[in-house]
Design a binder for these strands. Structure first.
Lengths: 196, 196
DNA sequence: AGATTAAGAAACCCAAACGTCTCCTAAGTG
DNA sequence: CACTTAGGAGACGTTTGGGTTTCTTAATCT
């Protein structure tokens, strides 16, 4: 569809690298990590295997790099109309992200976490940690404003929302509606932090 | 260790099948689904590839069967001293199971869920559903006894505990202490269902 | 005991990928 | 424009594993 297949343009540096990363993610989403191959990646990126090996030592390295750079959107939510609204916004964005192609990518890769410590660390640092951090910030600002009990902001309370979202989107493949998000906030999170 | 490697015993039927299933699970826990091979399974089970293909059509079928039959321990918790104790017991057992070798098996396999609907369904039915069910039963009995607000027993509230446990044990590879379990129950679950 | 079934071992063929290497030439550099 | 760099294409040799087949012989059945 991109005109005749004549003498193709040749990409370099950043542009090429970005195209390869895209191909890795697309391939992961399409065939899964089990069937991810360098040849498949090269074909989808319309490049050559040698180009891949020129930059990364192994499939694992390439996957780590691709996942690593694909996920730094920080999910930082600025305060809006109080805790409840902030939590709904934050979890909603999270659900949004996890339902898209990135959700499939994460699902494909996480099975191998136990056997690839680097992947596990990268994922933990890039995927989980920043989201948990930004969500904790939401709670803590609310606590500072006196909207919630300060003592209620524990690790498990902070984890609860993301865990539920994750399990629905990634593991069960469901798509959470905004009503669902509100239900999670109202039924689980708010009761845990509401001042008595 | 089992005497000289003379003419080996030859297993059949149920016994052999069980040994193969064990091998599949052990292999999954050891090398992950990405590197799971029929040859590896056969070697670990001390049997022949032909024996495997005589019974299952593909690696996928074998994995499905192995996971399927390995997980029917129902996790039904009988009522003890009230909701709190019941929840602690149920989640504790869940955490126990997920921290063992079965946890690694689940982690290995779930990446390919999106690409193997049968696996996904089998896992959902065998792993997730029964646990959610038994936990909901705990809540509902408590509601019937008047210990908690009946309206509080929603799907998300029921999911909350398992989701948190899952994300800690399987995804993060952490080992939850009984204190952790109590914290989850006290900080997240009880506030959600406590009668006002 | 003799007959039947199927486990185990091994050889086999074949396709897919790996990882390497060579060649050509487009894209950048001065 | 000459020169350097590195991407694209493809051909390799090799390994791994899939899946089949053959053969021997335990285990089970009648």
């Amino acid at each position: 569809m991109t005109s005749a297949p004549g003498p193709r343009q040749r990409r370099r540096g950043q542009v090429l690298e970005a195209a390869i990363y895209d191909a890795v993610l697309a391939e992961l989403a399409a065939v899964g990590y089990r069937r991810l191959t360098m040849e498949g990646i090269a074909a989808r990126a319309r490049t050559a295997k040698s180009t891949l090996y020129r930059r990364w030592n192994s499939r694992e390295d390439l996957v780590i790099a691709a996942v690593h750079q694909a996920l730094p959107y920080a999910t930082d939510v600025q305060d809006g109309g109080g805790v409840r609204a902030d939590l709904v916004a934050a979890l909603g964005l999270m659900a949004e992200n996890m339902s898209g192609p990135m959700g499939r990518v994460i699902a494909s890769v996480l099975g191998d976490f136990g056997h690839a410590p680097e992947l596990q660390d990268a994922a933990r640092e890039k995927i989980i940690a920043p989201r948990i951090r930004s969500l904790r910030a939401v709670f803590e600002r609310a606590a500072a404003r006196g909207e919630i009990r300060p003592g209620a902001v524990t690790p498990f309370v902070v984890q609860a929302g993301p865990s539920i979202v994750f399990n629905n989107c990634i593991l069960q493949g469901l798509r959470l509606t905004s009503q669902d998000i509100e239900n999670i906030v109202d039924q689980v999170l708010m009761p845990a932090v509401r001042p008595s």
